[in-house]
Design a protein around this nucleic acid. Structure first.
Ligand SMILES: [Zn+2]
Ligand SMILES: [Zn+2]
Ligand SMILES: [Zn+2]
Ligand SMILES: [Zn+2]
Lengths: 142, 142
DNA sequence: GTTGACCTTAGAGTTTACTCTAAGCTTATA
DNA sequence: TATAAGCTTAGAGTAAACTCTAAGGTCAAC
């Protein structure tokens, strides 16, 4: 039976975070000690590790809660239930990457256009591009 | 002279957002009408468009504030000042992309391992991977 | 002359995921 | 037997960027 600090060092979460996850239904201490300390058994620890793994992958707390509800009742859930959550997350991540790549490209174009030197910014092409609301560079892929 | 709603439709920002930006020093109305309405002149509009463009590229509000302070005093700032902000942002964006690509890869591996079919999740390989805290798939690029 | 769209302010609420604080027990160590 | 480290709770604070509300004044149109 681990105390919260022990679970924390075992999982790499902080005790604060574990209590926060508990409030959100992700981690649970099956027992309390006589004085009220949280006590985690092996099954609790495995669940905490599941949570940490899922969070590391990028699942939100709500996603993890959904995955846990499948986990505790696998026979009444399908592989489809699991992949739906995973697909949705993959879609989010992919969309975010697309957005960021567009930003990345624009920023790179801006940087390529400017010397970055010590001359004053009066004719800086980055500033000019930001000022031109109809600039090619800042409207994404042309 | 535009009123806030006119500036909003011209820029694609909402009136709420424009007031919020004003509070943060990004957009300013040079005048008020007799009854206190914000009035934006051409220069104000150009600044608002600069802000909108910079925000669209992904610069934070603090970044935009820094860019604006260069913009209003170009002769006392250098191209280096401008590129520093841009480089920092590019670095942030690139790091975020790296993170997300790692998530994307993991999620794809998970999805490839599961049929996604209507069978129950008892032997679901996604659930198994999440449960195995030492799983290959969930520890990023091996 | 009243409806409806638009404007004003200060300030609260939203989202996500923590992160920290205060006040007070408990437990291990020197 | 004192410290120090660790545990408890409720609740507040943080970050970013909005988003909305309430209560009220203004303006154009029918
Ligand atoms: Zn120059
Ligand atoms: Zn330059
Ligand atoms: Zn199966
Ligand atoms: Zn499956």
């Amino acid at each position: 039976m681990l105390k919260i600090g022990e679970l924390a060092s075992k999982t790499g979460l902080t005790a604060h975070t574990i209590r926060y996850y508990e409030k959100n239904g992700l981690i649970n201490a099956s027992q309390r000690s006589e004085v009220g300390y949280r006590c985690y058994n092996e099954s609790d620890v495995r669940q905490a590790e599941f949570v940490r793994t899922a969070r590391r992958i990028g699942f939100s707390i709500a996603d993890v809660a959904a995955l846990l509800s499948i986990r505790v009742d696998k026979t009444n859930h399908t592989c489809q239930d699991v992949t739906e959550i995973t697909q949705r997350k993959l879609k989010d991540v992919s969309e975010k990457i697309t957005e960021l790549r567009s930003m990345q490209k624009t920023l790179q174009i801006l940087l390529n256009s400017c010397s970055g030197g010590p001359e004053n910014a009066y004719h800086c092409s980055i500033m000019e591009a930001l000022d031109a609301s109809n600039s090619q560079a800042v409207r994404g892929r042309a």
